[in-house]
Design a protein around this nucleic acid. Structure first.
Lengths: 346, 346
DNA sequence: TTGTAAGCGTTATCAT
DNA sequence: ATGATAACGCTTACAA
């Protein structure tokens, strides 16, 4: 096919190839490529020509191996396909782009071991920094070494286990308490908490906030009115059926995250119930449902921005004790919290 | 604190450090780390111990520089925060993880130049492959060089400009025609098409499919019943107001993507209209609205999987002409398409 | 089974 | 201003 004689070396052209072609030394090419001065115009032009002719582009791996920085940050989330995380990542990418940093995203899934594998894999890349939404059960103490080695790590949404570190969270307790306050103000006294599977930091904080809100409103929190569910509809149907068969059923519900809110809404629909409802986490179309759903909104974009900004400060050399940034939540009143508290059994 | 006899070298530990500490040779460490066999249990244990003690993790750059493959693929989308794209990326990540590949994700935004910048940046990384949802207006012919150099590139959702390449799309025409057929079967004769901003491949294909469907049903497509909008609510309010002021207003609407569907729904609500409606793209909670919205569903997860699988085949060495994989769509009937065609003006 | 040594493509140091 | 040359940390023949 192709005769050996004039065939360019196989694979991608390297600086050496460029140097040969341009008839200059290797280091001259390096200087041109890195944009350092101290090269005559003639040679610069010759090198640039050779680069174009050969379609050369710098090997970032050799470059990074030599220089030590990859101009890349890593982001690890549990599921990139979840809107919350994808918006969060979007904000980080935006910020990173402004600084000409690349973002390496990986979702770690629900498995703690997989989580560690992904993180270790990331670490091998000598990232300039790392933003992590950590797995709940994973012990992240192995990251300590990395931090000691100088890679800043910022956690978001929930604190890591086994490690003290920078953290960006929202005020889950306060948000949940706001929800209760809103329902209580509408006259509700039997308010139930439908929480997402236990063990999760956010869920527990929100349950705690719920309890605090109830106490602040001088309302009782009987154990049968707090239930922990998974976000499958049938599970919620069962939970609601049981709850609304009580002698004194609830008249209002508080749900601890949007997946649960949606599942509970579908379950309510199936059971023909329409309790008052306030859900933690805003979600798209909450305003188009009837009734429109009142939510406690957190802002994943803002969380991402805050995490990115904090990380960049650390990368820039900010030292000092770990920081904890707490972002507020905001209640979006749409009506579902103001349904009159009439006793509603099955 | 801990006075080590042999000073731990500054910076990150390398294989050499591990080798020294474990009292073995460098290549033995390499073998253990790469999981190759042929090392005695004793030494394996010693090495693993040293790795833990030192908190060692392999330098991927050196590794890649040596082996030539980064075991990394790149994915470029327009906005990672859009649910469609994030699910798409999620599927690719899943598939990649099964093959122990890392995924570098970047969103290119709406700007054509930024799009090129991001792509070029990616290319410098010697990726094993690239999956791209290309910008509509960007000329991607510069990618040709890279493909010639052996980096497989698969496009998804829409074809690239200035380049022939592997492509995964859905059958937009057929899907749109299905929507029309459904509405026609419910007795509608005045069906309008609300299309998302022009110039977009998918939007145009769906408009074409709409027209084909209308023709197949022997229905007229007067120009005043096809309108191109942006997905802001107020724009849609204006468009609908005008359309429903016609002497013969439509009784049913077809929208070309979910963002438009949602905007049109909100606009309809504001105007007190309730036309029959079928929207391209399924969306969460479409079933909880009243009436529940009938949609033409495409499956971003499946698109991601198909793109990933095709890319992996190419990486594995599959040669041959560019492929075009067309995935079907599926109508999800929920009622909004069957609203009786009564004349509904403002 | 294990260690030694030669690169991978780049940048940095040092002569020239 | 320019060019040889030695690392960077790793893999992989090849030797032992």
């Amino acid at each position: 096919m192709s005769d050996r004689k004039s065939t360019p070396p196989p694979g991608r052209p390297t600086m050496k190839d460029v140097a040969t072609r341009a008839g200059v030394g290797l280091s001259t090419v390096s200087r041109v490529v890195s944009g350092k001065g101290g090269v005559t115009r003639d040679k610069v032009r010759a090198v640039e020509r050779a680069i174009r002719d050969l379609g050369y582009s710098r090997n970032e791996f050799a470059h990074t191996l030599r220089t030590g920085s990859a101009r890349t940050i890593g982001v690890v989330v549990t599921r990139i396909s979840d809107p919350f995380y994808s918006v969060f990542v979007g904000a980080i990418e935006k910020r990173a782009q402004e600084r000409d940093l690349l973002v390496l995203v990986a979702s770690a899934g629900d498995d703690a071991r997989e989580n560690e594998r992904v993180l270790r894999r990331m670490l091998g890349r000598r990232l300039d920094g790392l933003i992590v939404i950590s797995h709940e059960e994973a012990d992240l103490s192995f990251l300590q070494t990395e931090r000691d080695a100088g890679t800043p790590i910022v956690f978001a949404d929930r604190p890591p286990h086994g490690l003290k570190a920078d953290l960006v969270v929202v005020d889950n307790r306060r948000g949940a308490a706001d929800a209760v306050e809103h329902l209580a103000a509408a006259g509700h006294t039997r308010i139930a908490c439908i929480a997402h599977v236990a063990g999760q930091f956010t869920s527990e904080e929100r349950q705690r906030g719920f309890a605090e809100g109830m106490r602040a409103a001088s309302l009782p929190t009987p154990p049968e009115l707090t239930v922990v569910v998974e976000d499958e509809v049938d599970v919620c149907v069962e939970a609601l059926r049981e709850m609304f068969s009580l002698p004194e059923p609830p008249t209002a519900l508080f749900t601890t995250n949007s997946r649960t809110t949606k599942a509970v809404l579908k379950a309510s629909r199936l059971l023909g119930l329409q309790p008052a409802l306030v859900g933690f986490d805003d979600f798209e179309l909450a305003d188009l449902l009837s009734p429109a759903i009142t939510t406690i909104a957190q802002d994943p974009w803002a969380i991402g921005e805050a995490a990115a900004d904090l990380l960049f400060e650390r990368i820039a050399g900010l030292i000092g004790p770990e920081r904890r940034i707490v972002l507020g939540t905001r209640i979006i009143e749409r009506g579902s919290g103001e349904i009159a508290p009439r006793s509603s059994g099955l």
